[in-house]
Structure formats: structure tokens, C-alpha cells
């Protein structure tokens, strides 16, 4: 049974900004995670194939080709986990 943890190395809360979190995908699964997210989320803007401005279920987030994503305004880690489950699984 696939799980979010198969793709995600860690979720860290950001400091200084409005409540947010940085998600780091596992190095060996990041290409797969990015491809899955790009399929499901709506692309608003992108730059040089490096940064992607996306929305999914009313939540805006930015994903980077290095395998990281920043979610802003999401209540807590559990909410981000749920969102990632919907995006990745």
C-alpha cells in the first residue's frame, strides 16, 4: 500500500512567514513525486523549469525541481499530509 512517507523525507514548518511548511521529497522518488503533482495540480505560473506556482483543492503552493515544495497558510502538518496524500497517492 503506497504511503505519503514513500515520497516525502520530511515536512518542516517555516519560520517568519505566515504559517507554512517546506516539504522535502525523497531524493530517489522526487522525479516521480513532481510528475504526479504536476498531473493533479493546476499550474498558474512557472519559471525556467525550476519553480512552479500551483493550486490544488484551493491551496496555493510552490514546487521546485530540486524536490522541495512550500505550502503557505496550511493549518498544520496533518493538513499538509492530507493534501500530499491527495496529490501523490
Amino acid at each position: 500500500m503506497p504511503a505519503v512517507e514513500d515520497y516525502v523525507a520530511r515536512i518542516e514548518e517555516t519560520c517568519g512567514e505566515e504559517k507554512g511548511a517546506v516539504v522535502t521529497f525523497k531524493y530517489d522518488r522526487k522525479e516521480e513525486a513532481i510528475a504526479k503533482i504536476m498531473k493533479k495540480a493546476k499550474l498558474k505560473n512557472s519559471l525556467s523549469g525550476i519553480i512552479f506556482d500551483l493550486t490544488f483543492q484551493g491551496v496555493s503552493f510552490r514546487m521546485f525541481s530540486s524536490g522541495k515544495a512550500i505550502f503557505k497558510g496550511v493549518k498544520n502538518k496533518e493538513a499538509i499530509h492530507d493534501l500530499l496524500a491527495a496529490l501523490l497517492l
Partner: peptide, 19 residues
């Protein structure tokens, strides 16, 4: 945001700090 800037630079092999 500072974190966007840091991650974009990180993608280009440049390390800064954000927060």
C-alpha cells in the same frame, strides 16, 4: 517570500538562509 528565494537559489547550487 524569503523561502521561495532560498529554494530557487538552492536549485541553482547557491546556499543562503531564509527566515
Amino acid at each position: 517570500s524569503s523561502h521561495d528565494v532560498a529554494l530557487f537559489l538552492d536549485n541553482n547550487g547557491i546556499m543562503i538562509r531564509s527566515g
